[in-house]
Design a protein around this nucleic acid. Structure first.
Lengths: 337, 337
DNA sequence: CTGAAAGCGCTTACAG
DNA sequence: CTGAAAGCGCTTACAG
């Protein structure tokens, strides 16, 4: 049979309240009593029922993390960082990865009484009102991706992508590149990618001859895998536009783009320099090794949890911006001519 | 305030039992009553409390999936397949990714009353007794990785790696290769990788001149990422052993190995052919494109859930073997000489 | 077809 | 320092 607190209490000759008190180490139980209780716990191989516990405490000790895909190791690392940090504090994390059913997840969060959720999905996938609805129900949330969320209600964690992009542009410019393409993955009017803003700002600031002509927008559903990079690069080559450098919205896109470039007779970096974002491990082994704007993905996940934890502990929402770092490898070089 | 079944019942002018009956669509409620109830549900924006529900039903509708890492997209895809299938049946899945704290997870599964768990971690990481302990507590489990588990107690899902390996060997042999190395990642005496068995069998069957000399064992902690592949390949090159083909325990290792090979002046596939396992997307974009023994990772995750679901539904344990398929690309070629 | 009531296994003031 | 009791929000026989 299933052993409960009552069994333990009976064996130890105390009340269930006392068992609770020792198990939750409230410190208000005499040492000798506590020992009796622990002995019974061990003897019966008793393990507390978290569900019953949640029922009383109104805290499920469950978190949700929602993201579209795990095919990009970038997200895998973020999940890992988040989950490990959460676990340290006795939270379990539910992974929610779906491309088309985010709404269902939000309903589930409410009905399952999760304590908090980390939304790392593409923002165009959901409605901010759904998020606020969670908050109204007492669920803390942290978002990522420049959703333009009300920071009184939800926390946020971002990378300084605008600055990062400017840094890349500056770097490329100093290498002599002026015809710099950007494989953006998203569309210009989508507000959540500050990379686009950084790019456009620099095009103007540096007075680049290409203007906005080399900003290659993405197409619905805006996936950003290797295949997409391959296709975007193939398209821009086919268009006949001239360029000597291409920045990509992430490393996967960059890797796919390099493939297309090579197939079409371009040498990387001799003919065209390529830069990615994310700093996934693969880039280091690519040929040529990928120059990338890297960030600490594990740390990103950990930090997201910390902020969420703070909010759950009553400290209120917070926002944070992670540092990114340009890692120069072999896919970029001085512009020839 | 938080709205409960009692509120709904009051508004609809029925008992809470009736509300339950319509919400669980037991079909024993008059249509007109059900409509009254649903109207109240909507009016109050009521959502059921799964925790309270679990409390009565003794089912948490939570699953666990444990794996070491998400850095390899191979696992990301498996998680995705598993999670999506689980979600279809109203299960939430807890992701448990830790390299060193598997035991904690097992305790948590019990205390949190998960209904089932999918253990996709390296078997040397845990003790089978811990798994059986879960089963004794009523938690269904499915394992992967040839743990030599008692199939009366737990389900299993495997790939036919032994056969797959033999197929690769045969393929390479027909291409004229006889000095075929295997970067095994694990040690020979570890029982859970049937690839090793397949390799050794074929070495004998084909009467290969290398004997066991080209079986390169892994070192603790037996990680199998690109860095590892890079190092294993570097080591075998340094050893001076002659080989014309190398099979790798997974694609990541293969990709790292190719990098090391190239750096040391070997051309792939002209000088040495390389084959991986898994069929992750990256291989397709590599240079050269990677020949690999591929399997449907999403399907793998889905199938694992199906089996677990069957067990949870009382159908008992089951075991399943997934088909794998050799995808020949550009990293393998006829042996010259 | 519907309702009263017991029960699921905890926690937490409150009394003593 | 310890215990009796109410409460958390559901489900499920069982009566009617």
């Amino acid at each position: 049979m299933h052993v409960t607190r009552a069994d333990v209490a009976r064996m130890a000759g105390v009340s269930t309240a006392t068992v609770s008190n020792v198990l939750n180490s409230s410190g208000k139980v005499k040492k000798s009593t506590a020992e009796k209780v622990m002995k019974a716990v061990r003897a019966l191989d008793y393990s507390p029922d978290m569900i019953a516990r949640s029922m009383s405490t109104k805290r499920s000790m469950q978190l949700g993390i929602v993201l579209e895909s795990l095919s990009n190791p970038f997200f895998g690392d973020i999940v890992k960082g988040f989950e490990n940090a959460a676990n340290q504090k006795d939270y379990f994390v539910n992974i929610c990865t779906g491309f088309n059913k985010l709404d269902e997840y939000f309903d589930n969060f409410i009905t399952r009484r999760v304590d908090g959720v980390f939304v790392a999905a593409l923002p165009y996938k959901f409605n901010m009102d759904r998020i606020y609805n969670l908050v109204d129900k007492g669920i803390k949330v942290i978002v990522s991706g420049n959703v333009g969320a009300d920071l009184e209600k939800v926390s946020s964690i971002e990378n300084d992508y605008c600055k990062a992009m400017k840094e890349i542009m500056q770097y490329l410019y100093e290498l002599g590149h002026t015809r710099i393409a950007y494989l953006a993955g998203f569309r210009k009017n989508m507000p959540y990618d500050l990379r686009i803003k950084g790019y456009l700002d620099m095009v103007r600031e540096l007075d680049l001859p290409c203007g906005e002509d080399l900003l290659i927008e993405g197409n619905y559903p805006y996936t950003t895998g290797m295949q997409d990079g391959y296709e975007y690069a193939r398209d821009i080559i086919a268009s006949g536009k001239k360029f000597t450098a291409v920045i990509c919205v992430n490393d996967l896109v960059a890797l796919g783009a390099i493939k297309a470039l090579k197939e079409n007779g371009y040498k990387v970096p001799e003919d065209v320099s390529v830069v990615g974002f994310d700093g996934i491990e693969f880039g280091k082994y690519w040929e040529p090794e990928l120059t990338t704007m890297s960030l600490d993905k594990i740390r990103f996940g950990e930090k997201a949890f910390e902020i969420l934890y703070g909010d759950m502990a009553g400290k209120g929402t917070a926002s944070y911006e992670l540092a990114v770092e340009l890692i120069v490898r072999k896919s970029t070089a001085r512009c020839r001519e």
